[in-house]
Design a protein around this nucleic acid. Structure first.
Length: 309
RNA sequence: GGCACGGUAGCCAAGUGGCAAGGCGAGAGUCUGCAAAACUCUUAUACGCCGGUUCGAUUCCGGCCCGUGCCU
């Protein structure tokens, strides 16, 4: 028996400050869509101004999903994200509507589109033990161990890449199988029966950097400092490293002045945008859009292969 | 005006009588359960100026210029 084909999932990716959210709303309004966020920091409740979450008004106009999933002191993972994504997507598609997935967290996009292999999650005990070995006896030891036990994975990792070396050893210890072996079981989106389209917003780097500067100034006007102050000491390690917040800790301790902090935030946001650009650049499936918001919307709607509203 | 300290790459900064650390930034990349993270590569003929000592000075000496602090 044949399933009725689902609407293709539309992904809109790009660097921070490129205007993804606004474009997504426009697209969603045209296609009877709902928005799913693909952002690793907007999942935290209360971190609103600093992560530039869509306004109430925007959320009222179009339903938004996968914002405010956890408290900022809670842990989260790509795995969990991926599950939540499909939960939300199914709900939307079930209504005959269109999923407009927007975001700049490359890893999350990848986990959804290319799949995530079914290997087990982290094991705090193993991780701590390996961390300790790395600290006391040197990372080389761990790398050497990995080279012996799993030469294939060792080869693709740099000897200084502590996080991934430990992760590879962890999976090995937990399952007796190589990470690479697990990865062969990954199921990409199309194999799951979903159609999809990837769109990226192309902007000149200078224009993007300017937009970022403006946005950071705007965040300060909206009360970024107050928001961060309220959240200080209440954030998990991951949430506390969010740009805009992590720079302010120094200010609260009297170690930096606000002007410096603001410039640092701008700079770090630019660095981040650059990394996002690099991440998405290599994905040849992405259709790159430029022009006005309306032109980009038209193009997406046309390529989505669906009638407009 | 006097005294003290300082002047090293776009910025910060260590250091030595004989190849001048590092960090930030910038550029290019990697990425499978912390990802706004982590990691990699590339990047600068940089020692304030003028003399002196020396085989050799960024380093020691003298003068000058500039900055900072203190004193009058």
């Amino acid at each position: 028996m044949k399933e009725t084909p689902k609407n293709p999932i539309l992904f809109i990716v790009g660097p921070t400050g490129a205007g993804k959210s606004k474009l997504a709303i426009r697209v969603a309004r045209r296609l009877r869509g709902e928005i799913i966020s693909m952002d690793s920091m907007q999942i935290y409740r209360g971190m609103d101004i600093g992560t530039d979450k869509p306004s109430r008004w925007a959320r009222w106009r179009v339903p938004h999903h996968l914002f405010d999933l956890v408290r900022p002191d809670q842990e989260f993972s790509v795995y969990e994200y991926r599950n939540r994504f499909f939960e939300a997507a199914e709900k939307i598609l079930g209504k005959g509507k269109t999923v407009v997935a927007v975001g700049g967290t490359g890893l999350y996009v990848k986990a959804v589109v290319d799949g995530l292999s079914p290997h087990p999650g982290k094991d705090e005990g193993i991780r701590n033990r390996l961390e300790k070995i790395a600290a006391e006896e040197g990372l080389n030891l761990l790398y050497a161990r990995l080279q012996k036990a799993d030469p294939g994975v060792a080869k693709r990792l740099h000897p200084n890449d502590k996080k991934r070396i430990i992760r590879a050893l962890e999976v090995l210890e937990l399952t007796g199988k190589s990470l690479a072996e697990w990865e062969r079981k990954t199921i990409p989106l199309e194999a799951m029966g979903y159609g999809y389209r990837l769109f990226g917003i192309r902007t000149g780097r200078l224009a993007l950097y300017k937009a970022i500067d403006r946005r950071v100034d705007c965040m300060f006007r909206k009360g970024m400092v107050k928001e961060a102050f309220r959240l200080r000491d209440k954030l998990s390690a991951t949430a506390a490293q969010a740009i805009g917040y992590r720079e302010l800790w120094g200010y609260f301790e009297g170690k930096a002045n606000l002007v410096e902090v603001r410039e640092k935030i701008k700079q770090h946001t630019r660095n981040f945008a650059k990394k996002q650009l690099i991440w998405f650049k290599r994905d040849s499936r992405i259709v790159w859009l430029s022009g006005t918001e309306k032109e980009m919307t038209d193009r997406i709607v046309r390529m989505a292969g669906l009638p407009g509203k």
